[in-house]
Amino acid sequence: MTEELKVAVERKPNGAVLYTKGYINNVGGEEIANRAYELMDDGVRTLLLNLRDTKIVNSIGISILIEIIEKMMEQGGKIAFCCLTPVIHKTFQIMGLANYAAIFENEETAVKELTL
Protein backbone atom coordinates (compact mmCIF):
# COMPACT_ATOMS: atom_id res chain seq x y z
CA MET A 1 0.00 0.00 0.00
CA THR A 2 1.55 3.29 -1.06
CA GLU A 3 0.22 6.80 -0.91
CA GLU A 4 2.16 8.73 -3.49
CA LEU A 5 2.55 12.45 -3.07
CA LYS A 6 2.36 14.66 -6.14
CA VAL A 7 4.17 17.97 -6.24
CA ALA A 8 3.61 20.75 -8.76
CA VAL A 9 5.67 23.92 -9.07
CA GLU A 10 4.63 27.36 -10.21
CA ARG A 11 7.37 29.92 -10.64
CA LYS A 12 6.53 33.47 -9.61
CA PRO A 13 8.49 36.68 -10.31
CA ASN A 14 10.01 36.66 -6.82
CA GLY A 15 9.95 32.99 -5.85
CA ALA A 16 7.81 29.92 -6.31
CA VAL A 17 4.76 28.05 -5.09
CA LEU A 18 4.86 24.29 -4.46
CA TYR A 19 1.51 22.51 -4.58
CA THR A 20 1.29 19.18 -2.79
CA LYS A 21 -1.34 16.52 -3.31
CA GLY A 22 -1.49 13.52 -0.98
CA TYR A 23 0.14 12.17 2.15
CA ILE A 24 3.28 13.90 3.44
CA ASN A 25 5.27 11.03 4.96
CA ASN A 26 8.99 10.21 4.60
CA VAL A 27 8.71 9.61 0.86
CA GLY A 28 6.43 12.59 0.27
CA GLY A 29 8.65 14.81 2.42
CA GLU A 30 11.72 13.79 0.38
CA GLU A 31 9.86 14.56 -2.84
CA ILE A 32 9.04 18.06 -1.55
CA ALA A 33 12.66 18.47 -0.38
CA ASN A 34 14.03 17.51 -3.80
CA ARG A 35 11.83 20.04 -5.57
CA ALA A 36 12.56 22.73 -2.98
CA TYR A 37 16.33 22.19 -3.20
CA GLU A 38 16.19 22.36 -6.99
CA LEU A 39 14.45 25.71 -6.69
CA MET A 40 16.95 26.94 -4.09
CA ASP A 41 19.84 25.90 -6.35
CA ASP A 42 18.14 27.94 -9.04
CA GLY A 43 18.19 31.02 -6.82
CA VAL A 44 14.69 30.91 -5.32
CA ARG A 45 14.70 32.43 -1.83
CA THR A 46 10.97 32.72 -1.16
CA LEU A 47 8.97 29.53 -1.31
CA LEU A 48 5.28 29.04 -0.55
CA LEU A 49 3.98 25.53 0.09
CA ASN A 50 0.30 25.28 -0.73
CA LEU A 51 -1.08 22.20 1.05
CA ARG A 52 -4.68 22.53 -0.15
CA ASP A 53 -4.77 18.93 -1.44
CA THR A 54 -2.93 17.39 1.50
CA LYS A 55 -5.11 16.12 4.32
CA ILE A 56 -2.59 14.06 6.28
CA VAL A 57 0.98 14.69 7.38
CA ASN A 58 3.02 12.59 9.76
CA SER A 59 5.84 13.47 12.14
CA ILE A 60 8.53 12.12 9.79
CA GLY A 61 7.22 14.24 6.93
CA ILE A 62 7.19 17.28 9.20
CA SER A 63 10.79 16.63 10.27
CA ILE A 64 11.76 16.80 6.57
CA LEU A 65 9.82 20.06 6.15
CA ILE A 66 11.82 21.42 9.10
CA GLU A 67 15.05 20.47 7.32
CA ILE A 68 13.87 22.38 4.23
CA ILE A 69 13.09 25.43 6.39
CA GLU A 70 16.55 25.15 7.98
CA LYS A 71 18.29 25.00 4.64
CA MET A 72 16.32 27.96 3.31
CA MET A 73 17.07 29.99 6.46
CA GLU A 74 20.80 29.21 6.06
CA GLN A 75 20.59 30.75 2.59
CA GLY A 76 18.80 33.84 3.87
CA GLY A 77 15.45 32.88 2.37
CA LYS A 78 12.04 32.11 3.76
CA ILE A 79 9.40 29.42 3.51
CA ALA A 80 5.70 29.85 4.16
CA PHE A 81 2.64 27.59 4.10
CA CYS A 82 -0.96 28.16 3.10
CA CYS A 83 -4.31 26.36 2.85
CA LEU A 84 -3.75 24.03 5.81
CA THR A 85 -6.54 21.92 7.28
CA PRO A 86 -7.25 22.77 10.94
CA VAL A 87 -5.56 19.57 12.15
CA ILE A 88 -2.44 20.15 10.03
CA HIS A 89 -2.30 23.74 11.31
CA LYS A 90 -2.51 22.42 14.88
CA THR A 91 0.15 19.79 14.11
CA PHE A 92 2.52 22.43 12.70
CA GLN A 93 2.10 24.49 15.86
CA ILE A 94 2.84 21.49 18.09
CA MET A 95 5.92 20.63 16.04
CA GLY A 96 7.21 24.21 16.14
CA LEU A 97 6.98 24.94 12.42
CA ALA A 98 4.77 27.92 13.05
CA ASN A 99 7.68 29.60 14.87
CA TYR A 100 9.92 29.47 11.80
CA ALA A 101 7.56 29.70 8.84
CA ALA A 102 4.58 31.98 8.24
CA ILE A 103 1.21 30.29 7.80
CA PHE A 104 -1.47 31.92 5.67
CA GLU A 105 -5.11 31.03 5.31
CA ASN A 106 -5.13 31.27 1.52
CA GLU A 107 -2.72 31.62 -1.38
CA GLU A 108 -3.88 35.08 -2.40
CA THR A 109 -2.96 36.55 0.99
CA ALA A 110 0.32 34.63 1.07
CA VAL A 111 1.40 35.83 -2.38
CA LYS A 112 0.57 39.41 -1.42
CA GLU A 113 2.32 39.29 1.96
CA LEU A 114 5.40 37.53 0.59
CA THR A 115 5.46 39.81 -2.47
CA LEU A 116 5.85 36.74 -4.65
Binding site: N58, E70, G96, Y100
Partner: peptide, 17 residues
Amino acid sequence: RRAAPGTAHKRGRGLQL
Protein backbone atom coordinates in the same frame (compact mmCIF):
# COMPACT_ATOMS: atom_id res chain seq x y z
CA ARG B 1 13.15 15.02 21.77
CA ARG B 2 12.65 18.29 19.96
CA ALA B 3 11.88 18.90 16.31
CA ALA B 4 12.59 22.59 15.89
CA PRO B 5 15.08 23.93 13.33
CA GLY B 6 18.64 23.88 14.62
CA THR B 7 18.16 20.91 16.94
CA ALA B 8 19.71 17.52 16.48
CA HIS B 9 16.58 15.42 16.89
CA LYS B 10 14.05 16.34 14.27
CA ARG B 11 12.29 13.00 14.46
CA GLY B 12 10.49 11.33 17.28
CA ARG B 13 7.77 13.83 18.11
CA GLY B 14 5.01 11.35 17.34
CA LEU B 15 4.16 10.81 20.98
CA GLN B 16 3.68 14.51 21.53
CA LEU B 17 1.35 14.66 18.56
